[in-house]
Simulated assay, not measured.
Amino acid sequence: MTYRMSIKARRALIAVAAAAGVGITSGCGLTVEKLPLPKPGQSDDSYTLHAVFENALNLPDQAKVKIGGSEVGVVSNIRTKNFQAIVDLTVDKSIELPKGSTAELRQATPLGDVFIAMSKPQTQPGTELLHDGDTLTLEDTSAGATVEQLLISVSMMFNGGGIASLSKLGSELDSIVGGRGPQLAHLITEMTGVIGSLNENSANIDGVLNQFHTLAGTIETRHNELGQVADTLPNMIGAIAENNQAIGDLLSKLSTTSAALGDYSNTSGQQLGDLLDNTHQLMNALAATGDQFGQLLDRLQVLTPKAASSFRGNSFAVYATATNLDISALTDPEHGGLQDLNDLQDFAGSIIQVLQLVQGRVTGAGR
């Protein structure tokens, strides 16, 4: 009995409510289309962020703001400034976004509405958070590829784009490698050997690079000295240029002298050899006398004034003592003789004659 009464009571209340609704509707002219709809995702406890995008033409008003697929806010306003779109994001106050967060325009489905996906960076405890009124600049915002861009990219890839390039590349590789398998294998083997050698000599290569580094450091430390040398080079070059003629004349004379000495050695080689051989024998003979040659010169120095005084006087008186004197006239009378000044003059004349021949070859008189 009670259950039936409650059902009847409920039905009566529904009928009264319906009648009241119809009366209100018919009296005020209110329709379903005019009823206000709640805005998605909005709440009274929220804060606003501003995001700057290069282009937000497909972003609708009241678009969703999501983090990891979860809705955290809505787009409350879109305006333009300096050819850029400034979007106001109303985010639930319980969501903490650290500085460095990014915003990207995305589409859930190819024909779906565009929404804004927020991403948090990896942060350490104590990182500063975004507050009401902060702005995400162009460096923090981006736009994902739209359906139109995706279709254009696919069309370009298949119609003369990447697929056609890959086909052309495959045909070119086939024309290059076709029938040249052994050559290609040999090339790969050689390249492998070269790479192996480089790997084995990596320590030497590192050493060379270190030496270059050291050289570069030395040059850097000697920068001032090198600059001074570079400053003095123009003066040195100028001095050489001024004396260019003199240097050329000197080189010409040296060339002439060298040629003359060469001609003399070619034409008078036997005579020069004989002269040098006689000089060698004379020096050996003088060396063989040892101290006796010095004693002979001392005694000749003592004997010379006496001989001169004897020749100048009316009488001939010479007193001379010779001991340990080896003279070829005494020891070998048959083949030897006394040495006189003529022998020394002949020796000096021979040397003078050789020097005159050399001078004649140098000056060109005998050429």
Rank of each mutant, 00 (worst) to 15 (best):
L250F: 06
G68F: 05
I24D: 00
G73Q: 07
K168Y: 03
T267E: 12
G238M: 05
L338M: 06
T90K: 11
G366P: 06
D263V: 05
A63G: 15
V154Y: 10
M5E: 12
L97R: 09
A20M: 04
L254A: 11
P121G: 06
V74I: 13
Y47P: 01
V52A: 01
R79Y: 09
K253W: 04
N77S: 13
I176D: 02
G100I: 10
V362Y: 06
A185H: 08
V229L: 06
A288D: 14
N224P: 06
L276A: 13
N235T: 15
A239D: 09
S171H: 06
Q301H: 02
N243R: 10
A117R: 07
P38L: 07
L226N: 08
A63K: 11
K168S: 13
A239S: 09
Q62P: 12
I163D: 09
D249G: 04
S153H: 04
E220T: 15
S76T: 11
L89S: 07
I7K: 12
E200S: 15
A203F: 08
S153C: 01
N204Y: 08
A12Y: 03
T123Y: 03
D134W: 07
G68P: 05
Q84L: 14
V75R: 09
A85L: 02
V114W: 03
V91M: 11
N58R: 13
E200T: 15
D44Y: 00
V52C: 01
I14V: 09
Q211S: 08
L169S: 15
F83H: 13
G23Q: 01
M1W: 02
E172G: 06
R361D: 15
M118W: 03
V74C: 03
N243W: 00
S255D: 14
H223S: 14
D44T: 05
A285H: 09
E139V: 03
H131R: 14
L130R: 12
Q107N: 15
V75P: 08
A307G: 08
D291I: 14
G360D: 15
Q295N: 11
E225L: 04
A216Y: 08
I95C: 05
A185C: 05
M5T: 07
D44C: 00
D206Q: 15
V75L: 04
S315P: 00
F347E: 05
L130S: 09
I116N: 04
A164H: 07
A288M: 10
S155F: 10
Q211C: 09
E148Y: 05
P234D: 10
L37A: 05
D249S: 09
V114C: 02
I7L: 14
A348P: 00
A12G: 08
L150C: 05
K253Y: 08
D174W: 01
D44W: 00
V114M: 10
F311M: 03
Q122D: 13
T267D: 12
G196T: 13
S94F: 01
G100M: 10
P38I: 05
Y47V: 02
L138N: 12
L215D: 13
I78A: 07
R180Q: 10
T31H: 03
K39E: 06
R222C: 06
T192W: 02
A143V: 06
A230M: 08
T127E: 12
E139G: 10
L275P: 00
T331F: 03
K99F: 02
N201M: 07
Q211T: 14
G69F: 04
G27F: 05
N204F: 12
E71V: 15
Q183E: 15
